[in-house]
């Protein structure tokens, strides 16, 4: 179990590094799918099979597909890759990376000093999750529903390709 976890964790970290360093966005998204898959394995090891399934379906499936759709709508060409190369220079990423590594070091230290408890990997199955979700967390479910609704409305409203509105008096009369 431990070995499986460390392999999956290694895959997840590596593929995530690949995601943030790719110039071509489609390549990046493919690595992202790998990363999500690896995490799904981790979830499974942790005894959360339902979460693992959702990870694959929603993250690796729906969200990534959504992003790919948008990329297709934007119709990006090969110049985009050249553009990315120009943007991602060492002077751009060294500073933020150092800062984040400091933060990570602090985080690791903080997590490390805590007493460690073993994880048995006991399975918490769908039934329990469902009862909890529709029992004590029912309010949260309702709120999530509202959030999704507003997300749909917002996305529709923002995504519309509006006609550029010029003042009607400035419009040229149609001939």
């Amino acid at each position: 179990m431990q070995v499986t976890f460390y392999i999956a964790a290694g895959v997840a970290i590596l593929s995530t590094i690949m995601v943030i360093t790719r110039f071509n966005i489609i390549h990046a998204l493919l690595y992202l799918v790998v990363s999500f898959m690896a995490l799904a394995v981790v979830f499974y090891i942790m005894g959360a099979p339902f979460a693992a399934a959702l990870e694959v379906i929603v993250y690796a499936g729906a969200i990534v597909v959504l992003i790919i759709f948008v990329i297709m709508m934007l119709n990006l060409k090969s110049e985009a890759v050249a553009q990315e190369k120009k943007w991602l220079t060492p002077e751009v990423y060294v500073g933020p990376a150092i800062l984040c590594i400091i933060l990570l070091a602090e985080l690791i230290y903080t997590i490390g000093v805590g007493n460690t408890v073993g994880i048995t990997g006991q399975i918490v199955d769908v039934k329990e999750v469902g009862q909890s979700l529709y029992g004590e967390y029912i309010l949260g479910v309702e709120l999530s529903g509202m959030l999704l609704m507003s997300g749909i409305v917002g996305a529709y409203h923002l995504g519309r390709q509006k006609k550029k509105v010029v003042h009607r008096f400035l419009e040229k009369p149609e001939e």
Binding site: P96, L99, C100, I102, L103, E106, L107, Y109, T110
Partner: peptide, 20 residues
Amino acid sequence: LRWYIMGIVLGGILLLTISL
């Protein structure tokens, strides 16, 4: 946008350092 996030990161470092 990235400057703003940088601000958040710096703030996070600061808070963590203080608590450490």
